[in-house]
Amino acid sequence: MALNQNPYMPEMATVTRIIEETPNIKSFQVVFNDKEKMKAFKFQPGQVGQLSVFGVGESTFVINTPPTRMEYLQFSVMKAGEVTSALHNLYEGDQIGVRAPLGNYFPFDRMKGKNILFVGGGIGMAPLRTLILYMLDNREDYKDITIIYGARTPPDLCYKEDIKEWESRKDVNLILTVDAQFPGWEKRVGFVPTVLKEVAPKPDNTVAITCGPPIMIKFVLEGLAELKFPDDQIVTTLEKRMKCGIGLCGRCNIGHKYVCKDGPVFTLRELKELPDEA
């Protein structure tokens, strides 16, 4: 069992570095206080963790570093509610609790030998980042990698360092877009689903992985359907209000599936078999 004997017991960890990604998103690099546990920690790209700010609560975030880079675990947090605000108030060196890994992961084995299309929006880039980095670390296993990434404005784009690197790589096709004209922005302008249709990637031997705000996902899925992507070649990750993270507390279910345990990664085909409660 990857988890502690008591599944509610977080592992104490230290925030080693905080990166201000955007005006309301910070990334936290976290290391377990117990060095042995850090060394033994195993997870797969797409799995999530519960971060605890003690006295405030827990919240779920995807581990957005890949298992191929284990110096620290990184979580990106958009300031929205009570726990995320408390996280934003932390300083480097502060103590938090981590319960990880939880949930399922991207079917990266099944994607081997295929073209990969990433479609991300805003903070939705976090789970995609894990997989992108993982694939770049195992580049020979995958064919063309296309990334469509959009945000409201250029400052709202996360992972600027990564973006710089991906732009410079020849084996990555990165397409950036922002919602509206912005001074100094010379790249594409337009909503992600629109840009997707403009780019019009071919569905042949391609897996599409998308994550972003619910409304973006909705239109991206429509767009992918228009481009004739089959349902089982479309992968998305869901977000829900979660508490226990281990499939018990009953709030993140869609039908008989628990997003925290059976998810957060689902293919569109799986989702279509569930009640419309995403």
Partner: peptide, 22 residues
């Protein structure tokens, strides 16, 4: 019915993570 909530409650220098029926 077993669905539950988990919340943190704290005072100045200590606190608890409690599980309550929801």
């Amino acid at each position: 019915c077993y669905c539950f909530n988990i919340t943190d409650e704290k005072t100045k220098d200590k606190g608890e993570r409690i599980r309550t029926w929801d």
